[in-house]
């Protein structure tokens, strides 16, 4: 009798084990297409501010992604390869000491949707009104509806508080370039050459690594990726009134774990002394 009971138990155990295995297989089957879907679209995370530079997550070597994105906010959280998609910065006064190829930037031109068109489609110097090409007589901005529709930032243009206009920064005849003090064109990838015209103190701090951000090797002669002005600041509305201290607001990452037994963090909002 006892033996029979033991056999029954063993049989029942084997049966349940078999059932568990088959159930697990069934559960795994529908999960696979979902995984493939996720694999199709790798996460793209923004680096400094939304709307500026972005990175697409991919695996460089097994178990080593180029970047880790935040599941909550979609921000870049960790760099496996800090130099991805970079090109040499080009000539920059004051940075002659840096060895060749150790100052890198990520080109902005690819991210600017209007860039390839603006110099050819509209501001090409030919057209019914501009033939022969004529430039504005004064520097008083005239609103152009087509332009305003394409660049929404212009509706809320704040830079300079009304004291500067488009052609103080954009080149008069080469609209896919910026302009320096001498009227020479400056690439969109090197906005520091333009911004430094007025913000000299910030340019000096940026050159020394105090202002702005650099990633890569920290030693002063090391290979670094430099974040240029427009990767962090939107030049058209840098003084947005909705902001706090000049920064665009963004969603914060999740808060730390509450201590055991604590339901919420309301105690943090109580003033120790009522007033």
């Amino acid at each position: 009798m006892k033996k029979l009971a033991i056999y029954t138990v063993i049989l029942a155990f084997c049966g349940s084990a078999f059932y568990a295995v088959s159930a697990a297989e069934q559960a795994a089957a529908p999960a696979e297409p979902a995984k493939q879907e996720a694999a199709k679209e790798p996460p793209v995370c923004f680096e400094s501010r939304k709307g500026a530079s972005e990175v697409t997550q991919r695996e460089i070597k097994p178990g080593w992604p180029n970047v880790k994105c935040s599941p909550t906010t979609g921000a870049a959280l960790w760099y496996g390869d800090p130099y991805e998609g970079t090109v040499p910065m080009g000539k920059m006064p004051g940075l002659e000491k840096i060895p060749e190829g150790h100052a890198l930037i990520k080109p902005r031109s690819e991210k600017l949707a209007l860039m390839p068109m603006c110099g050819t489609a509209c501001h090409n110097g030919v057209g019914p009104q501009f033939n022969p090409p004529k430039l504005p007589k004064d520097k008083r901005p005239t609103p152009i509806p087509t332009m305003g529709a394409m660049v929404p930032d212009l509706a809320n243009f704040q830079h300079g508080r009304g004291r500067i206009w488009c052609l103080d920064c954009h080149h008069t005849t080469k609209r896919n370039m910026l302009v320096d003090h001498f009227g020479d064109p400056v690439s969109f990838d090197q906005p520091q050459l333009l911004c430094g015209k007025c913000h000299g103190d910030k340019l000096r701090d940026w050159r020394d690594g105090i202002h702005g951000k650099r990633i890569g090797e920290f030693v002063s002669s090391g290979k670094k990726r430099w974040f240029t002005c427009t990767e962090c600041h939107n030049p058209h509305n840098v003084q947005d009134g909705e902001r706090n201290r000049g920064f665009v607001q963004l969603q914060p990452e999740p808060s730390p774990q509450l201590p055991k037994g604590m339901k919420d963090a309301k105690h943090e909002k109580l003033h120790p002394i009522p007033h």
């Binding site: 706090n244 963004l250 969603q251 808060s255 730390p256 943090e268 002394i273």
Partner: peptide, 15 residues
Amino acid sequence: VLEGQYHYQPEAVPE
């Protein structure tokens, strides 16, 4: 007067 808060979670920062 308020002591530091660790668990702040607003919609957007900086406040």
